[in-house]
């Protein structure tokens, strides 16, 4: 949309996308749970939103939305942020932001191929972030027991892969469908 003001890197639109993105992420994380049927395990809608917003606005916005959203949620629920997971979520936003280039959502169509690419990429990112980064962070920062944190990480990775596959893909498809196609705006 903007072609002129690409001056100081972070555009006003990106600032707002970060702010609103994190607000929605927070609300989804705190208040919305879609049960999976397995006890105490919910589909994480917030990660699906993170995928969409990162895919639309790129890695920096993705990173900040994950960071701010997760920090706030931790702060309000548990008092203080659990940094290793905050970092993991931020990194996840960053990695998904890299998909902006090949998704090119602003320009209209979303082929099955792109959707598959997106899902492979999100699965890889999820595994990297939750099975590698978060547990190592737990061990380094909090000296937690490896057995425990890797198990937690693996469960989270699976839940999030499924969440993003379902909610993220759904949001992408709905977004593209809602955009009027180029030069289709002709008065009858």
């Amino acid at each position: 949309m903007n072609n002129k003001q690409k001056k100081s890197g972070f555009s006003v639109r990106s600032v707002v996308a970060t702010g609103i993105g994190a607000a929605v992420f927070f609300v989804l994380m705190k208040f919305i749970a879609i049960p999976t049927g397995i006890s105490n395990t919910n589909i994480n809608v917030a990660e699906g939103w993170l995928a969409l917003i990162a895919g639309l606005f790129g890695p920096v916005v993705g990173l900040l939305v994950g960071f701010i959203g997760h920090t706030l949620n931790d702060a309000v629920t548990y008092g203080s942020p659990w940094w290793s997971w905050v970092i993991a979520d931020a990194l996840f936003g960053f990695l998904l932001g890299l998909s902006k280039r090949f998704l090119a959502l602003e320009y209209g169509d979303l082929s099955a191929k792109k959707l598959i690419q997106f899902n492979i990429w999100q699965a890889v990112s999820n595994i990297f972030v939750w099975v590698v980064v978060a547990p190592i962070g737990d061990i380094l920062i909090y000296k937690e027991a490896a057995q425990k944190v890797f198990l937690q990480g693996a469960v989270t990775a699976v839940v999030n892969i499924v969440s993003v596959a379902v909610i993220g893909s759904l949001l992408l498809v709905a977004y593209v469908k809602s955009r009027p196609k180029k030069s289709s705006l002709r008065s009858e």
Binding site: T18, G19, I20, A22, A23, F26, V27, L64, I68
Partner: peptide, 10 residues
């Protein structure tokens, strides 16, 4: 400021 927007719009 992005953080301020988050607080404003939650």
């Amino acid at each position: 400021y992005a953080f301020a927007i988050t607080l404003r719009y939650i």
